[in-house]
Simulated scan of single mutants.
Amino acid sequence: MLENIKTEQFYTEYKPLLFSLAYRMLGSVTDAEDIVQEAFLTLYKSGSDHIQNMKAYLCKIVTNGCLGLLRSTRKQREKYIGTWLPEPLVTTASEETDPMQSYLQKESISTAYLLLLQQLSYVERAVFLLHEVLQYDYKEIADIVGKSSANCRQIFHRAKRSLHVKDDSDLLDHFDQEQTTNLVEQFMQALASADAARIVEFLSTDAVLITDGGGKVKAQLQPLNGHIPISHLTSNFLKKLPGNLTYRLTMVNGLPGIVVYLDGKTLTVLSFKILNGHIVNLYFVINPDKLTHVF
């Protein structure tokens, strides 16, 4: 009974941090939740009296769990049909006061950021996140990933060079909450009317549309470039859909986004990268396997 109470206390304290790490590593909400649950199950079975640093202990379990899952699913990712996008993390205004969401908001979890991390090897991603997001020193990271502290330092700097990051602020999405929300809301209205002329007004001329159908539904297999082609494709796609389309403005990966429903069922989740008042990247997750947790 006492050990169960201790585990619940640790769960409340560390779950937001551990989910944050696992989600950035995996780009999957469901897998991140499973990895975190498994970490606490391991803790419950082993007991906590022998653990000197609980945060490091749990981070090590989660990191190793993520690395193991990534390696085991490598072939699936290599055979993925079309462009892979992370599972959208959808939150509402009422959830923003939740400890999980407030912790996630401290660092960028945007779709663009998560895609940037995909450029790194699994170990590079782990070292980079542990140092950049969780502020671990290299000695602590070395214990977690099983490498020397000097090696971890080299891995981190190599990862940073790979991402072409000069400064920590380069990783964050700087945006005006009210202006961005208004822009996305107006874009949503343009989508709802399937008006290509209105849609194009919100896009930068070199905008890029990326869709993820995973081979489960019809989607663009390659990124689509240019504001005119994107406006025509999106408006025509929505016009051809049978049934009743509805839209909800919400927070997707820490930034204003849109959930689209067809006859009350989640059809797609839209997230964006916005610069200088225009949408430069549009991300449409249509793969139904990645939308099971979105309501």
Rank of each mutant, 00 (worst) to 15 (best):
F128H: 04
Q186M: 15
D212C: 03
L120R: 02
L120G: 04
S20R: 04
N53T: 08
P288Y: 09
L69R: 04
G213H: 00
L224M: 15
P288E: 12
R71A: 13
S28H: 06
K45A: 13
L163M: 13
R161C: 08
T205L: 09
G226I: 13
D173R: 04
A192C: 15
S72H: 05
T181G: 11
S121V: 00
I35P: 07
T91R: 10
I230A: 08
G82H: 03
P288C: 13
L117K: 01
C152N: 09
V269S: 05
A126P: 01
S28R: 07
G257R: 03
Y283V: 02
N244I: 12
M1S: 15
G82M: 07
G27T: 02
N4D: 15
T266R: 04
L18N: 01
K60R: 14
I81Y: 01
N276G: 01
E78N: 01
V133Y: 02
L255S: 06
M188P: 07
L41W: 06
I35Y: 02
L18Q: 03
Q9P: 00
Y11F: 14
K290I: 12
N151T: 13
H174N: 08
L58A: 03
A196R: 14
N276L: 03
Q186I: 11
Y247F: 15
F237V: 09
T181D: 08
D49M: 12
I155D: 01
R77E: 04
L115W: 01
K240P: 03
D263G: 06
L270Q: 05
A93C: 04
